[in-house]
Computed example of a mutant assay.
Amino acid sequence: MDSNAIRARLGALIASRGEDYASLSRLLGRNASYIQQFIKRGVPRRLSESDRRILASHFGIAEHLLGGPADESRAILARPGLARAVNDYVLIPQYQIRASAGPGALPDSETPTARIAFQAGFVRNLAHSPPEALAIISVEGDSMLPTLAHGDQIIIDTNDSAAARDGIYVLRVDDALLVKRLSLNPATRRITIQSDNEAYPSWPDCDPAAVHIIGRVVWVGRKL
Rank of each mutant, 00 (worst) to 15 (best):
178 L>F: 15
188 T>Y: 12
18 G>D: 08
195 S>M: 10
100 S>Q: 07
9 R>Q: 11
27 L>K: 02
158 T>H: 09
189 R>I: 10
5 A>L: 14
118 F>N: 03
159 N>D: 12
101 A>C: 09
88 D>N: 15
26 R>Q: 14
80 P>I: 05
44 P>Y: 00
145 L>G: 09
8 A>M: 11
4 N>D: 14
76 I>F: 11
56 A>C: 06
59 F>L: 08
170 V>N: 01
37 Q>K: 13
104 G>D: 13
86 V>H: 14
146 P>C: 06
136 I>T: 07
126 L>N: 04
88 D>W: 11
135 A>I: 05
65 L>M: 12
117 A>N: 10
29 G>N: 06
63 E>F: 04
198 E>P: 09
179 V>C: 14
180 K>Q: 07
12 A>F: 11
12 A>L: 10
15 A>T: 13
164 A>S: 14
46 R>E: 13
185 N>W: 12
104 G>C: 09
142 D>Q: 14
119 Q>R: 14
16 S>W: 08
66 L>K: 00
149 A>I: 03
97 I>W: 07
186 P>A: 04
123 V>S: 08
74 R>F: 03
196 D>M: 06
85 A>T: 12
198 E>L: 09
84 R>M: 11
152 D>C: 00
178 L>A: 08
192 T>Q: 15
7 R>V: 00
143 S>W: 00
148 L>I: 04
172 R>H: 00
18 G>F: 07
125 N>I: 00
156 I>N: 02
218 V>R: 01
8 A>L: 12
9 R>G: 01
64 H>S: 10
94 Q>T: 03
159 N>R: 15
30 R>M: 15
205 D>Y: 04
191 I>C: 07
2 D>N: 15
6 I>W: 04
84 R>W: 10
165 R>A: 07
172 R>L: 01
198 E>V: 11
56 A>G: 00
78 A>F: 07
70 A>H: 15
8 A>W: 08
99 A>M: 05
182 L>C: 07
145 L>Y: 15
176 A>Y: 12
185 N>V: 05
148 L>V: 08
83 A>E: 05
138 S>A: 15
67 G>Q: 07
43 V>P: 05
52 R>K: 10
93 P>C: 03
99 A>K: 04
23 S>Q: 12
192 T>I: 12
219 W>S: 06
193 I>G: 01
217 V>A: 03
32 A>W: 10
72 E>A: 06
169 Y>I: 02
160 D>T: 06
107 P>Q: 14
147 T>A: 13
52 R>S: 06
189 R>V: 12
3 S>N: 15
19 E>V: 07
218 V>W: 01
182 L>Q: 04
153 Q>T: 04
35 I>Q: 05
188 T>R: 09
93 P>H: 05
106 L>G: 09
96 Q>F: 01
220 V>D: 02
31 N>I: 08
59 F>G: 00
105 A>G: 13
138 S>G: 10
100 S>A: 05
188 T>P: 11
65 L>H: 13
91 L>V: 10
73 S>F: 11
29 G>Y: 12
187 A>D: 11
200 Y>E: 08
137 I>A: 06
64 H>N: 10
167 G>P: 00
211 V>K: 01
87 N>V: 11
104 G>T: 09
51 D>Q: 00
151 G>I: 01
90 V>Q: 14
47 L>M: 02
43 V>I: 10
27 L>Q: 02
188 T>I: 13
220 V>A: 03
70 A>F: 11
54 I>Y: 01
8 A>P: 04
59 F>H: 06
112 P>N: 13
